[in-house]
Design a protein around this nucleic acid. Structure first.
Lengths: 224, 224
DNA sequence: TTACGAAAAATATCAGATATTATTGATTAC
DNA sequence: GTAATCAATAATATCTGATATTTTTCGTAA
């Protein structure tokens, strides 16, 4: 009886997660070529396994597979950021409406709990502890995931997860920090959720998302 | 100077397309296990190449990759069909609104032209020529793609393309035929597009999509 | 019938070989 | 000096075959 049946049973799965993480968190820069031989050592995987991984990431649009010229990290642009932001707003807004309409008490308490963890961390960060950015992003993702978790559609949640990670990548790359504002908006989302007010939630979400885009564009943090 | 730079330059790309096509068009049945050795011969690809392909398809959720138990064709269910349908309605509805607002004359004529090809084929099919199902589906896809082609978001169009193919798969599997109704609805979509009436288009699209779902559910064409 | 464990099948992963394609740099022509 | 040409180099796509694990299968014992 194997005590721990972690999801990343396979070895290649670990490398996949790592590479994906490194792209989203900017360790692998946009446009960087991904030579197979070079990746072998740092990710502990053979060329064949790496090719499988890069193919998966290409499907997710996190890497680019150009003909027979190998792979490279997906480039970034203002235009694309706007598209990703709009997509997130569409999916998450719709999912919240559904979720608010169906969520039961169990759901409510999950949202509450996810918000609590996030808020505590935001408190710490607001107080100057900037050490936990990755953890913060994880709780952020989990809070937003909790909000829509009662929407009743795996397909919708999967699509949201994917676009959320693209959005997150832009937040990281453009070094967007708007801690206190974000924190307030999270609080407002929580309140809207408990009040089942999807319209209010959509409004807050719109601000939450568009503020980042505007901040990035205004300060020219992305090429073109 | 190579005269033909077709997109499927690589050999594995051909196998990818073929397998994908075979899943969507029901040649590979839902739930069927995809043993690597068995696929080698029919798709002219080695195990390594096949693994790359199946990994890509797994990202697209057309195949299932369960831990170390290999791959299988993604299963189907009523619940999932409903989710896919709702997703298509959300994405396509939104994309049409954007597209109608931005499309220029070039766009209008593309829509018109795409509709013409589709309508001609529907005429033929309505007259009894059932030989061209795959061609019909292709024109159907191209018409809907044309409608949203001015939406201004590659991200949105990519997501739509993906969900559209899932939806198409259900249409094929459940052997849904509602030719004349569909044809009429396509006509209404064209009219709405030219009149830039996104609200009307959304209504028609809702019927267009939900009619298939209801037909399937009512006749119990899918397990569970 | 259920439980257990050994044999067989399949998978994940690797390494290395070949053919094809891109890239680079030097050479030549204008 | 710039542009075109072509050989040398590097990188990719793809295949074959090998090894270690993991599943599955199936017969035997409880």
């Amino acid at each position: 009886m194997d005590a721990m049946i972690s999801a990343d049973a396979t070895a290649g799965e670990a490398a996949y997660r790592q590479i994906r993480h490194d792209i989203i968190f900017g360790k692998l820069l946009p446009g960087a070529r991904l030579k197979l031989e070079r990746l072998r050592e740092p990710y502990n995987a053979s060329v064949s396994t790496l090719r499988e991984i890069l193919n998966r990431l290409a499907s997710e649009r996190l890497v680019l597979a150009e003909g027979q010229r190998g792979f490279e990290v997906a480039p970034v642009s203002q235009q694309h950021f706007k598209e990703v932001a709009a997509m997130r707003e569409l999916l998450e807004g719709h999912a919240m409406r559904e979720s608010f309409a169906r969520g039961d008490v169990e759901w409510e308490s999950n949202v509450l709990s996810a918000h609590h963890k996030l808020a505590r961390l935001e408190q710490r960060m607001s107080a100057g502890d900037a050490s936990a950015t990755e953890e913060w992003k994880r709780y952020d993702r989990e809070f937003h995931a909790a909000l829509i978790s009662a929407c009743g559609s795996c397909e919708l949640m999967a699509a949201h997860r994917q676009i959320f990670d693209h959005y997150l990548r832009y937040q990281i790359i453009a070094v967007i920090y708007r801690g206190d504002d974000a924190s307030r908006e999270h609080r407002q989302l929580l309140d809207a959720a408990l009040a089942r007010d999807h319209q209010a939630a959509a409004n807050v979400l719109g601000r939450h998302i568009q503020a980042c885009v505007e901040h990035t564009v205004r300060n020219g943090l992305l090429a073109a």
